[in-house]
């Protein structure tokens, strides 16, 4: 039994990592009251930047930096349009997704079919990686995977244990009140948006240089949207985001596993399983309106200008 569950758990964790990265970033953005639907686009731009860096002989650290920088640049463009120019956040976010998909497909044409000359490989921690079940899944991650766990803990700590995190959450609830207390609404929101961009870019880097290790068009395959949904499903809480990502990763891994052992099910049905499972859980959670209402940042998606 354990022999079949262990690899399943390991691949569930591996599949969950980039989702956690992207969703954590978006969680911080939304907690500050900004809705950035451009997650998928920023991930694709990050993936492209990372892949191009390694393809042209750059190392893995420069790849991460390039991915984060690409995400930040894209997110700051979004921030300028929505926070400074007060444009509609939904429209701007969707445009960002379309732009990211287009640019990455266009610039990435030259890399199609390339294998990444350098990539993130698993780094098992001695002893801990030998623990049954948990060892192979949690303690033999690649460097980005460990970084994800650290960022998860760091984000939760930041949001709930620091003054800046409290200020960010408060701004998401009521920018008007926040300003009357002397908090810098726009500054904090720009910071949150940039953080979300960096995290999305690194998530893209994960897909390009740690998971697929080769370039293909649209390699994030809609996972940016899953990450967005996870934030809501997790009622804007970091640990629940991780749980949701593991659930999605687990169902994805199960599908791949069933296929591998030769269960006669349509591959399309299997491929759609994780999405169906996520939708089912989302609907179940959203049925409790109280839950969503109590936790949703009250000013989410609403424009606010610092001047009175």
């Amino acid at each position: 039994m354990l022999e079949s569950v262990t690899p399943l758990a390991a691949s569930a964790v591996a599949l969950a990592m980039p989702l956690i990265l992207a969703a954590l970033g978006e969680l911080v953005v939304e907690r500050a009251g900004v809705l950035n639907l451009g997650l998928e686009g920023m991930m694709l731009l990050g993936a492209l930047a990372a892949f191009a860096t390694v393809a042209h002989g750059g190392g893995l650290v420069p790849a991460i930096l390039a991915a984060a920088a690409a995400g930040i640049l894209a997110s700051l463009a979004f921030g300028f349009i929505t926070l400074t120019l007060q444009a509609n956040q939904v429209a701007a976010g969707l445009s960002l997704t379309i732009l990211g998909a287009g640019v990455s497909a266009f610039v990435g044409r030259q890399y199609v079919g390339f294998r990444a000359p350098a990539s993130f490989e698993d780094l098992p921690i001695p002893l801990l990686s030998k623990v049954p079940l948990l060892g192979p899944s949690l303690f033999s991650l690649n460097a980005l995977g460990y970084a994800t766990l650290a960022l998860l803990a760091g984000t939760a700590w930041f949001l709930y244990r620091t003054r800046a995190g409290l200020a960010l959450r408060s701004i998401g609830e009521s920018p008007v009140v926040a300003r009357s207390l002397g908090l810098h609404v726009s500054r904090v929101r720009y910071g949150a948006v940039a953080f979300g961009g960096a995290m999305a870019g690194i998530a893209g880097c994960y897909y390009a240089v740690a998971q697929f290790k080769m370039w293909q068009e649209g390699l994030t395959s809609g996972n940016g949207w899953i990450a967005l949904a996870l934030v809501v499903f997790a009622t804007w809480r970091p640990l629940r985001v991780a749980f949701g990502a593991l659930l999605f990763g687990g169902v994805s891994a199960l599908g791949l596993y069933l296929q591998a052992i030769g269960v006669q099910v349509s591959t399309f049905a299997l491929a759609s399983l994780p999405y169906l499972a996520t939708v089912a859980v989302l609907v179940a959670i959203s049925a409790d309106q109280q839950m969503i209402r109590r936790h949703a940042p009250a000013s989410l998606g609403k424009p606010f200008h610092d001047d009175s």
């Binding site: 003054r163 409290l166 959450r169 408060s170 009140v177 926040a178 207390l181 002397g182 908090l183 009250a298």
Partner: peptide, 25 residues
């Protein structure tokens, strides 16, 4: 002390007060 209270509803009393005060968190 505002007539229309400058309070955040989703957080606790102590967190609301901490936001307005300087000093260690």
């Amino acid at each position: 002390v505002f007539q229309h209270f400058a309070l955040f509803e989703s957080i606790t009393v102590v967190e609301n007060i901490a936001l307005a005060l300087a000093g260690p968190f």
